[in-house]
Nucleic acid binder design. Sequence first.
RNA 1: GGAGCGUUGGUCAAGGGGUUAAGACACCUCCCUUUCACGGAGGAAUCACGGGUUCGAUUCCCGUACGCUCUACCA
Length: 508
Amino acid sequence: MEKKVRVRFAPSPTGGLHLGGVRTVLYNYLFAKQHGGTFILRIEDTDQTRYVAGAEEYIQDCLKWCDLQPDESPLHGGEHGPYRQSERKETYRQYAEQLVKQGQAYYAFDTPAELDEMRAKFKTEENPSPQYNYVIRQQMRNSLTLTADEVKSLLSEGTPHVVRVKMPDNDMVSFTDMIRGEVSFNSSLTDDKVLLKADGMPTYHLAVVVDDYLMKITHAFRGEEWLPSAPVHILLWKYLGWSDDMPQWAHLPLIMKPDGHGKLSKRDGDRLGFPVFAMNWTDPRTNEITKGFRELGFLPEAFVNMLAVLGWNDGTEQEIFSIEELIERFSLEKVHKSGAKFDFEKAKWFNHEWIKKAPVSSYKLQVERLFEANGIIIEDESKFERVLELVKDRCTLLTDFVHQASFFFKAPRTLDLASVKPKWNEDKAMFFDILSEKFTVLEEWNTADIEAIFKQTAAEKNIKIGELQLPFRIMLVGEKFGPAVFDIAALIGKEETINRIRFALTQF
RNA sequence: GGAGCGUUGGUCAAGGGGUUAAGACACCUCCCUUUCACGGAGGAAUCACGGGUUCGAUUCCCGUACGCUCUACCA
């Protein structure tokens, strides 16, 4: 019988949630939903020195915004908790001890200074980063080189020590990656990774294996940067006797900087002027705010869609996918092997498409808040929706609505006179004078009637419509942009239209 | 230095032994609109290089180059 699919996203709460992290969440989520499985959020907070207040809540909030919520997490609970590794501290030691007993791991008493010394001593041009490996360990202070009595007394004295895995000196470790296929490594090339730190906390290497086992994870997705340490994890699964339960691995391609090379980092976003984090992140130490996609005006649907196709596509020409479609179509086999450079222009295109596609009601509230922040209070909700509907084609970001729609609620204070004045004359002034009078007595106020009167009057005065539309636009909008002028007039109302014409006439 | 992984236009990418090598973003030209967009029509790639295998390779194999990741008591 097939095991029930259980996947996990296991971030370290050290700061803002990176784009790549969200994509890993997404792939986990899609895979879980597609297989009727369970998506788990596990917090990997084993490094106390890197603890950042608020980072965990922030991650949960990001998942909530993206609507990629876990089924089990520190917040949602579940039967395999706790879901914070710091709260599982006691469970790891026994496994480390088991490995020591079995001879597959050992105690090491080397101090950080001694490790530095070792690296300095063995460092050569050929070997710039000497490893604590099967050769070097013979010259260090550990339970392999010390006598049993020495080890016993060091331990009983409470000497700080770590537990390191004893990597075989010549073993081929291979496994099948769901994205890359067969991958193999020689065990001698990997160092004796620390499993349990001197403070009693496990390192990632031990924790990921123990927790994936205990939490019955069936498929483990993570970034490609983990590939080189995969043999350690594979060996640990074997040594602990859990080989049959080992999850299937999938190492995801990295998201790269748009210029140059390398992994995309927060710094690149700052440098190139685009967000890297899902939502605004405030560093609790410096109070420095890093802009997020949400605050910049992205729709979560667009953000998720954009991330989904950054490294994956279903083989068709389709690019816009709803979450339901993604759940249906997603497949690991079609995930790319190589990294993709992040393109903010394309990301904005996705958002534009989603703004056009999504019902205005789904983002109305957010835009309303943006308006409030700009001093415009919306009183007529139905008018507001009609306005958004009318201008959404020209909004790439939610924040664009402020510029594209403010004039519907607030008369422009300054008019683009330069676009009108050169061609302005008495006849045109007279036209608008007559027009506003005709408007005054107009009973029906709608686009068709406004346009009809406008054209009729123009014909009477023998002026070309085109010559009149631009000034009219400047009167109503203040600048050269926006939807059809007659639609604007219809929406802002008769009185307001006339007021704006009268005011503009004093300026032209 | 070593190991692993990768390499189709500026970017995302489809395809995969015989094709005019899709599509999208960005860019340029034009049409539409006497606003700004939307929309529409066009423009640009011998698939990193060198060897094989083959009647034939961008597609398979091997090298080379280049890139990335890792090489911490960080994840």
